[in-house]
């Protein structure tokens, strides 16, 4: 199994992104989200969890991590737009995700394509 050394920039981004994802977790319990429907916290929770999983993949320098991160970025945006959640968090998420994606794609070729 090929062991790819993780660049420091990816390490730093992963730590920051994991903290941001975990901090987003209590958002599931806010009254405004709960009021949208019984299953909305579940949908947002799955998105947050899969974003976390994608970051673990990127930490291990796996391409599937970047691919899952891109999918979850768009899924999250579409879900927020569908729910009309144009909050600060929505724009902040676009801002930092794009910066992270630039770094991820710079190192994409160095990443392992296996599971």
């Amino acid at each position: 199994m090929a062991i790819v050394k993780r660049p420091k920039s990816i390490s730093a981004i992963c730590v920051i992104a994991i903290i941001l994802v975990l901090l987003a977790f209590p958002m599931l319990f806010t009254p405004s989200i709960k009021r949208m429907g019984d299953f909305i916290p579940m949908i947002l929770g799955i998105i947050i969890t899969l974003q976390f999983v994608s970051l673990i993949g990127i930490w291990h320098m796996k391409r599937w991590g970047v691919q899952l991160f891109v999918i979850m970025f768009f899924t999250r945006m579409i879900t927020f737009m569908f729910l009309e959640l144009y909050t600060f968090q929505f724009y902040f998420n676009i801002f930092y995700s794009i910066i992270f994606l630039v770094f991820f794609f710079i190192h994409y070729k160095e990443m392992d394509s296996n599971l």
Binding site: F25, P26, L28, F29, T30, P31, S32, K34
Partner: peptide
């Protein structure tokens, strides 16, 4: 809403 947000923050972090 205030009580709910307080509960969400405290409960969310306790679950983490």
């Amino acid at each position: 809403d205030i009580v709910g947000i307080a509960g969400a923050i405290i409960g969310g972090f306790s679950i983490l």
